[in-house]
Amino acid sequence: MKLLLVEDDDHVSAALSAVLRRHGFDVGTARGGEEALQELLHGRLAPFDVVLLDLGLPDQDGFEVCGRIRKLTSTPVIMVTARADVRSRIHGLNLGADDYVVKPYDTGELLARIHAVARRTSAEAEPDGRSPADTYESLRLGPLTLQIPTRRVLVNGEEVALTRKEFDLLALLAHRPGVVFRREQIISEVWRTSWEGTGRTLEVHVASLRSKLRMPELIETVRGVGYRLVAPPPAV
């Protein structure tokens, strides 16, 4: 697996690169955002499978780099950073990051997350592979409309931009409003993995949906079980 490590601390980069290579990764490195973008451009003939992106880069903020990467390629991006606040997690995922790992981290966990996002991307690239949302008809719940074929979401007729996983999560819950989906079921169907570490990512995506749709009561947390969508009243 070919991996691009974007990290400006030479000691951290050297140590992590050595670990990754011992586990069979072909590792390329970049010390800043512009260098990372050039590596991705030049690697198109043999593209990278995953990007590990530090946020504290010397030439530009990692969030900006992630946004530019996402315009350039669909290569999975894992943000690896000391910024542990939920707002930063949500912002990173909204920009298109596939996962978010907070320093200091366990190396085994990081390796598991790398393999997890690579597996998900590989499954989604299969010719007949479909996301959970693709199996549903278009849905309308009060002021909320999901146009499944075009993957668009509208609230009171105004489009709301969602990430791929946010849309899949919302579509899964909206297909059966009022029904409680277990966390394990959601993670299996939306993230296509059974790894428990995805649970935190699920929480962040739920928080992001509540914020973007401006309907915090739409997705209800069922403590100890999972989540359900509470059908909103009809639009006035």
Rank of each mutant, 00 (worst) to 15 (best):
L57R: 08
D59L: 06
D59H: 02
D59E: 00
Q60T: 11
D61M: 04
G62S: 02
G62V: 07
F63W: 03
F63A: 06
F63V: 10
F63G: 09
E64I: 12
E64M: 10
V65E: 00
C66G: 04
C66K: 07
G67H: 05
R68S: 10
R68N: 03
R68I: 01
I69F: 02
I69T: 03
R70N: 08
K71E: 15
K71Q: 15
L72K: 06
S74D: 14
S74L: 14
T75D: 08
P76K: 00
P76C: 05
P76A: 03
I78P: 05
M79R: 10
M79N: 04
V80G: 06
T81Q: 03
T81W: 02
A82C: 04
R83Q: 12
V86Y: 06
V86L: 14
R87G: 11
S88R: 12
S88A: 13
I90A: 08
L93H: 09
N94H: 14
L95W: 02
G96I: 05
G96L: 00
A97E: 08
D98K: 09
D98P: 08
D99C: 05
Y100T: 06
V102K: 05
P104Y: 00
Y105T: 06
D106A: 12
D106K: 13
D106S: 14
T107A: 10
T107Q: 11
T107Y: 03
T107G: 10
G108C: 07
E109C: 07
L110V: 08
A112F: 10
R113N: 08
R113V: 13
I114T: 07
A116M: 14
A118Y: 11
R119Y: 08
T121N: 14
A123M: 14
A123K: 12
E124Y: 11
E124R: 13
A125W: 09
A125V: 11
E126M: 15
P127L: 09
D128E: 13
D128L: 12
G129I: 10
G129W: 09
G129T: 06
S131V: 14
S131C: 10
S131Q: 11
P132Y: 04
A133T: 09
D134I: 13
T135P: 05
T135I: 15
T135V: 15
Y136H: 08
E137I: 01
E137K: 10
S138P: 03
S138C: 02
S138M: 00
L141V: 08
L141P: 04
G142I: 11
G142Q: 00
G142F: 00
P143K: 05
L144M: 07
Q147C: 08
I148R: 00
I148K: 00
I148S: 00
P149S: 04
T150G: 02
T150R: 12
R151W: 01
R152N: 08
R152W: 09
R152C: 05
R152I: 07
V153I: 09
V155T: 04
V155S: 01
V155I: 13
V155A: 00
V155P: 05
V155N: 01
N156A: 13
G157Y: 00
G157F: 02
